[in-house]
Amino acid sequence: MSELNKAMIEQYRNSFLSEVEANVEEGEWVKMCMQCGVCSGSCPLGKHWAHPPQEIFMMIRAGKREEVLTSDSMWMCTSCYNCIVRCPRQLPITHIMHGLATYAKKLGLTPKNQPTAKFAEIFWNNMMKKGRVNELKLGLSLYFKDGFGPGIKEALRNKDLGMKMMKAKRMAAGEFFGGHGVKDVSGLQKMIKKAQELEDARMKKFDEPEASQDG
């Protein structure tokens, strides 16, 4: 178990809801859910969610920490924003789902080989190198995300597509060797590092026992 996960369990022993409110993006909204179920009927990949958003909110309140954070469900969110425009209580559901996914990943609780979690990581790393996305490299690392063997198979399956994209000048081979990027890469990286530090510091604050807490 990751150290951070241990620390958080210790800290929020009996209130997963407070943990979510403190550490998850827009988590303070969870208590506003009135369990109407509109969001759950809105997810395009609904049948693939073991626990649709409404249920996730209920489980958070019921303290089902492990079940929520190790779930595959929030990784099914396509960011379609159907839920947000329909929720009668205006919960920022999309962001809470993203926030739960991010938090679970931080704690090392994401299911193994979750493809969207992997893709998100590949995407972010690809972008952070130069400040812009290099689509060719992004595509290649995607094929190989499950390892070399399946990667080759996947790449071959998409070979025809790749050729067509090249022909239409929508995939430049030159990108692989250089390609797009920002000029001030070092400034950008310093900036993100700082932002990350500031955010981690926010979470650490909750690590320290607060005077107001009982015991």
Partner: peptide, 11 residues
């Protein structure tokens, strides 16, 4: 809408 899982809110 995908970077979220690696780059959390503030970044």
């Amino acid at each position: 809408s995908i970077g979220y899982a690696s780059g959390s809110e503030l970044p």
